[in-house]
Amino acid sequence: MSRSYLPHWMHWLGSPPNFYRFAGALRPWLIAAALVCAAIGLYGGLVLAPPDFRQGDAYRIIFIHVPSAWMSLFIYACMAVTGLVALVWRVKLAEVIAMECAPIGAAFTLITLATGSLWGRPMWGTWWTWGARLTSELVLFFLYLGVIGLYNAFEDRRRGARAASLLALVGIVNLPIVHYSVVWWNTLHQGSTVDWLHLSQSSIAPSMLWPLLVMTLATHLYFFASILGRARTGLLSLEGGKQWVRSLVTETSR
């Protein structure tokens, strides 16, 4: 057995019925913690924190924009790592988690693009610029869409998951290359180098920093809660013929 050096609890958790119960038990706690953190963070960010002396109240978009941007990268990394596990060891659970990461990541990337656009409009008078961060984020969005599209184009979903995992790994090599090539491209075309966040990142006051960090924690907790729920659903559809799913379905109907 090639997986024998993994710790025992990983074997236990890698089994779909065990994971299904474990995720179901953990999920309510995670989402509750995420909601509490979001409430505290938003109260701190929208009410307690003073307006920025240069940007006024428009900067308050930072409390959702920056955590979403961090999440879009973090989730991609999660997807690539679980995708690698899926490709090397062919763990069914890893395949499911990698593929269920993609829609959440795409959602956070979409939020980042939309809120960034809404922030850029009052600050720099434009909805969109071809800055390095923006372009990389857009490319990231297309990478997510590619992974989702490839996975859904397969009849056999386990094979689709492996193909899409390989695409995710190709993408993680590609992402830094895109970022640096766009930086180089921007130095070539001077004048369009308005990069959002540069103004606000110079020095951030503690009263603005702590809500940002709490919101980051909230989005991480949300992601873990969401991925557990999605993985449960994914396992249910993938293991439809197995006995544990059948008994589960018939039990809950009565």
């Binding site: 490319v139 599209g149 490839l150 184009a153 397969f154 056999d156 689709g160 193909a163 695409l167 895109v178």
Partner: peptide, 18 residues
């Protein structure tokens, strides 16, 4: 990657863009 998929018309273009 797309060879085993049912339909891959626009898919390869979407994946190639990034």
């Amino acid at each position: 990657l797309a060879a085993g998929a049912r339909r891959s018309g626009i898919l390869v273009a979407l994946m190639l863009l990034p």
